[in-house]
Design a protein around this nucleic acid. Structure first.
Length: 476
RNA sequence: GGCCUUAUCGUCUAACGGUUAGGACACAAGGUUCUCAUCCUUGCAAUCCGGGUUCGAUUCCCGGUAAGGUCACCA
């Protein structure tokens, strides 16, 4: 049997890291076994649907590097891949159940059901519809919900993550198959679709595990062999006290991309949240994940989303990139003032920044003085623990000396400049902490910068001399 | 409240029943002729509690406790 996994979100908003992880694991299983990964939209709740979210979901998957083989926008042999376009199919299966006496119309009003529910709650029991199963339900005309007539029994199944599970008969209930608006519920539709689409592995969040007895009962009534199951633990919020959710500020995965996180980072980080390969390897490429991932090694406990670790990992992947590759990825993150700079110059700047940025978005803050005149900030001198020891005269004299020495340099390269700087240390009899700091500050007016000789070399002789001049005037 | 699940450094996690309980992030200290970052070294830091089983338990069993999920005409 070919491996076919799916990701089946409802288009009700954006995708957060919890959702994308489920998608990723399903994708990895499919890729690993040369199977197919399919995307399906479960849009059976029209009230909750959010305009534009289908497209948003698709771009989120793409942004992380999860490609699907079949889906709403690209079609495939089992389409359509949108549940609202498959209504006939659910009706067919529903009728089959009615014929078998395994489905019936729900005659109660919502208020009546609510009172049953309240009753159960006050009695501190779990609510169960079948305790109120009507004896002579009306003929289903589509205006009432259609319920599954369950046969309460114990089930045993294997879950790739949870292991062998046995459930008790009490938790099987008469759940709704088709709502009164004629749309199917998730509980019904996903089973029909998975069968129709020949899905081999159902990989989803742990919140569905308590519904498993109902699903198993339905598979049985429908005469279907059930797929392989794998229920993923939840990703918890930063406090670790709740499953990550949109309401408590879970971030859109696309926001991480916008904030300058690489797709490699997101994929590796999300995969290792609740999974590891048993070795001490900390980061994984996509190919490594496809090769090494296994559902059996997925943790059963929830994991917290640690942004600090994410940030570290992003820095790691940024450093792994070749300069050309990084240049491509960072194209839209340059400061405004870099627009008129040449590609070659930008690449040299980038080479100096590569070790220093943690997200692509850090770039402007670290490099702006390579493209525009920095704003003089004398506090960088008066609050520097070496520089504040110098008198104004000493500072000015030092700068004059530096300027005169630099003026003589004909070959303005990092190597020559390093020699020149070393020479200046001797002629001025200053410590590097004083001399280099001073030059660095007056040429960049930034709290930190790359190595001095590299910085000056890139700034160029004219700019360097001009900035020293301007600084001298300011200080005097 | 019923049912299900989980529990190792602050965080992510490793450890056929036998290890000085390992790695990584974070944090701290030091090194790399200035700063920042990278890189390197070092340090700090954990088996939820109580009972069993066993020569021996982080590991198996039971009971607590705590946390999460679920009990929708949402998925």
């Amino acid at each position: 049997m070919t491996t076919r996994t799916r990701f089946a979100p409802s288009p009700t908003g954006f995708l957060h890291v919890g959702g994308i992880r489920t998608a990723l694991f399903a994708y990895l299983v499919a890729r690993q076994e040369n199977g197919k990964f399919v995307l399906r939209f479960e849009d059976t709740d029209k009230k909750r649907e959010v305009a534009g979210s289908a497209e948003h979901l698709i771009s989120s998957l793409r942004a992380i590097g999860i490609e699907y083989n079949e889906g709403p926008d690209i079609g495939g042999p089992f389409g359509p891949y949108v549940q609202s376009q498959r209504l006939e199919r659910y009706k067919e299966w529903a009728n089959k159940l009615i014929e078998q006496g395994r489905a019936y119309a729900d005659p109660y009003t919502p208020a009546e059901i609510q009172s049953f529910r309240d009753e159960a709650q006050t009695a501190k029991r779990a609510f169960r519809y079948r305790d109120h199963r009507p004896e002579n339900p009306p003929i289903w005309d589509g205006s009432q919900p259609l319920r599954f007539k369950c046969d309460p029994k114990s089930f045993t199944y294997h879950d790739e993550v949870m292991g062998d599970v046995t459930t008790s008969p009490e938790v099987v209930d008469d759940f709704i198959l088709i709502k009164s608006d004629s749309y199917p519920t998730y509980n019904f539709a996903h089973i029909v679709d998975d069968a129709d689409m020949e899905i081999s592995h159902v990989i989803r969040g742990q919140e569905f595990i308590s519904s498993m007895p109902n699903y198993l009962a339905l598979y049985e009534a429908l005469g279907l062999r059930h797929p392989i199951f794998a229920h993923m633990p939840h990703i918890m919020n930063e406090q670790g006290n709740k499953k990550l959710g949109k309401r408590d500020g879970a971030k859109d995965v696309l926001d991480y991309i916008r904030d300058g996180y690489l797709s490699e980072t997101m994929m590796s980080f999300i995969a290792t949240l609740g999974w590891n390969d048993g070795t001490e390897q900390e980061v994984f490429t996509k190919d490594e994940l496809i090769e090494k991932f296994s559902l059996a090694r997925v943790q059963r406990s929830g994991a917290r989303f640690d942004e600090k670790r994410l940030l570290w990992m992003n820095g790691h992947f940024i450093r792994e990139l070749s300069l050309d590759e990084l240049a491509d990825r960072i194209e839209f993150f340059w400061p405004e003032s870099a627009k008129k700079a040449s590609e070659a110059y930008k690449k040299r700047v980038l080479a100096l920044a590569q070790d220093r940025i943690k997200t692509l978005r850090d770039l402007p803050g670290l490099t702006s003085y390579f493209f525009e005149e920095p704003t003089v900030n004398l506090a960088l001198i008066t609050e520097n623990k070496q520089l504040k020891k110098l008198s104004t005269n000493e500072t000015v004299n030092l700068l004059e000396l530096v300027k005169n020495t630099f003026r003589e340099v004909t070959d303005w390269t990092p190597e020559v400049l390093q020699d020149c700087l070393n020479q200046l240390l001797e002629t001025t009899d200053q410590k590097p902490g004083t001399l280099f700091s001073l030059i660095r500050v007056v040429t960049t007016w930034a709290p930190f910068s790359p190595q001095l000789n590299d910085t000056l070399a890139l700034l160029g002789k004219n700019t360097t001399l001009a900035r020293i001049d301007a600084a001298t005037n300011h200080i005097q």
